[in-house]
Design a protein around this nucleic acid. Structure first.
Lengths: 268, 268
DNA sequence: CCGTTTGTTCCACTATTTGGAACTTAGTTT
DNA sequence: AAACTAAGTTCCAAATAGTGGAACAAACGG
């Protein structure tokens, strides 16, 4: 029913349960889970037991509810640190945000969507939705389109069907053909705009971060509001952004992991 | 060999692999994993394939290395948001940090260790995964001891053997008996100190956050350095801290999740 | 007090995982 | 260039681990 890939067996099922718990966005009863799940009660029960024993779920015995476990936070911290993109890009983001005085985002593609991995808020705090770990659509954000545009044909073929093409504003690109044309333009221009396609009044300029081999490593964007900056104003920041994107790309390419240290067998 | 609980079958094995990748702290070759893993090559291979297909691991084909996948970051964001502690405590942390002008930590217990879930450094802003998700020892930090002291006997029995009792400084409590005595003192006093037990020159004052039922929900601490604040100075902050801890506790107790909204079947 | 809902256990059936071994590449050495 | 070595990938029969219908226990609501 759901998009569980064949061949991922029990492990895939366990992760599906995790996603279902996450989708609730709040602690959840066993019976609630059972209702939305395809699994028979006993099966679901055992999956939940196992996940709880592994601390990927947390069971509050007072309220009888399950929520995502803290071990995820712990692992995610490790994931963030060992990803080559976010930690290396950090100082560059700081400097860029300071220079341009607007909100700056760093993102990666995850399963056809934009996953924000870091953020700097500009002078004024526009409280938009975005924080590390947050996800958003790819087809209607500047940073999303910048990354899509540089996927190879095969990867794009995977990712296009995952776009929901929901209309958020009058400017949202709502079909595949229009999006593909736009991606072509972005590819030849080298960068992408968000022309209020996701939220009215919000515009952005975005660059891809490309490895020397041309593989897409992530995206970088500057976001502003129409009453502060026109698209033309934003475009004048293009050289500064391009430079930062390529600085980050080079940093990643040159990065050699501190060779051969078997570190800890769990410190404490 | 490793502490894989019996009965957690294939799922436990998959998570063990995730931990092993995390322990490297850097992208890792398949052969490196094979070396430290108890699993036969073919088995490990399939586990890694499955985890990669599920985006819990990421495979960089250029370098032939695996790292933790971005899906973890995504799930962790959901975990952080739906945990009752961290999001609810946020405004209280802000205010407390501003008032006391020192670093403030919010933590939970995870597997006998301290898991930091939020932090304020005097003035500066939040960076979620660079700081949240970090772990530290429980037996030699103020916030850790504050939480240990209020565990029930059974839970404490689980957790004490997990302490490494490594000596970090002259003041570190390095055996179970001494620690238990200290926990008793903390229980009757209501709060804990870190008397340079983890790092020389670093002291802290910490309170537990307790549910109405007496269950430990987390811990709250103010950290300073010996040249800025004496233990006595810190202790004078106790009423302020106690208040904040109980405010947070009450917030958690009163929190009723926005009843019965089946939200999205995955937005887009 | 009794019906109802929610959570937990059992166990014969079966599908999935297992891992030794053989087979490719890719990279070195003689 | 042929002969080695190491890393990564595939196969398949045997064994194990997961399945789920159904019965049971506990908690709730009127």
């Amino acid at each position: 029913m759901t998009s569980r890939r064949p061949g991922d067996g029990t492990i895939g099922k366990a992760f599906e349960v995790l996603d279902q718990v996450a989708a609730f966005g709040r602690p959840v009863r066993f019976s609630e889970l059972e209702r939305i799940s395809d699994f028979p009660k006993a099966t679901l029960y055992r999956l939940v037991q196992t996940l709880t024993s592994q601390r990927f779920l947390h069971h509050d015995p007072d309220r009888g509810v399950y929520s995502l476990g803290v071990r995820l936070v712990r692992l995610a911290h490790a994931a963030w640190r060992q990803s080559s993109l976010a930690p290396l890009a950090r100082p560059y983001l700081d400097r860029l945000a300071q220079d341009v005085g607007e909100t700056v985002h760093l993102a990666q593609l995850d399963h056809g969507m934009v996953l924000y991995v870091d953020k700097r808020s500009g002078a004024e705090a526009i409280e938009m939705f975005s924080q590390a770990g947050k996800i958003g659509p790819a087809y209607c954000t500047g940073i999303g389109k910048a990354m899509l545009a540089f996927l190879d044909e095969k990867a794009l073929e995977d990712v296009l069907p995952q776009q929901s093409f929901q209309r958020y504003t009058d400017n949202t690109l709502v079909d595949r053909a229009t999006l593909c044309a736009e991606l072509g333009a972005i590819r030849s221009r080298g960068y992408a705009f968000d022309r209020e396609e996701h939220e009215p009044g919000i515009v952005c300029l975005a660059f891809p971060i490309l490895s020397p081999g041309g593989r897409i490593e992530g995206g970088l964007s500057v976001t502003s509001t129409t009453d502060r900056k026109s698209l033309g104003d934003l475009e004048s920041l293009a050289p500064r952004l391009r430079q930062t994107a390529s600085d980050i790309a080079e940093e990643i390419a040159h990065w050699r992991f501190p060779d051969e240290i078997n570190t800890q067998t769990r410190a404490g």
